[in-house]
Amino acid sequence: MSPRAAARLATIGFEQVYDYTAGKADWAAAGLPLEGTGAAIPRAGDFARRDVPTCTLHDDLRTVRDRVRDSGWDLCIVLDSNGVVIGRLGRAALAADDHRSVEAAMSAGPGTIRPNVPLERIVTRLRERNLHSAVVTTSDGRLVGVLRRDDAESRAGDDASKQT
């Protein structure tokens, strides 16, 4: 649709016309703000915790474990040098006391969700899959945060009770 609009504007005489082809979906998936009546819908990115521990493949796993335990979290997100999510250290990996590398211990390529997904939909998905959290990333894979199921259920419940 936007290529046709750009072409139409050119025929009308506009000379500086640019087409943002990825459009609104791309903007929202990057966690950038939108305006309008739908902007009030709670979404995953609004409640993703940004303080989740992170590490890289080159970090010492024992040091990472100590840091994560001290933080009160039970997971750690593994990032590359560009902040792109490449793995996840879950409870089992963090509870073990072995000498593996981060790469050997992590679960590679964890499932992720975009910041603009409505919270209610995420609650349903987490319940169906019996998951405790979801990693939230932008469309290009950069970490936004981690949405905990209890946070999502709590907020979704608040909204449901307001509607009754």
Partner: peptide
């Protein structure tokens, strides 16, 4: 001024 057009995605 420059004009940027957009729709939902690659439509």
């Amino acid at each position: 001024r420059p004009v940027i057009v957009y729709c939902h995605d690659y439509q």
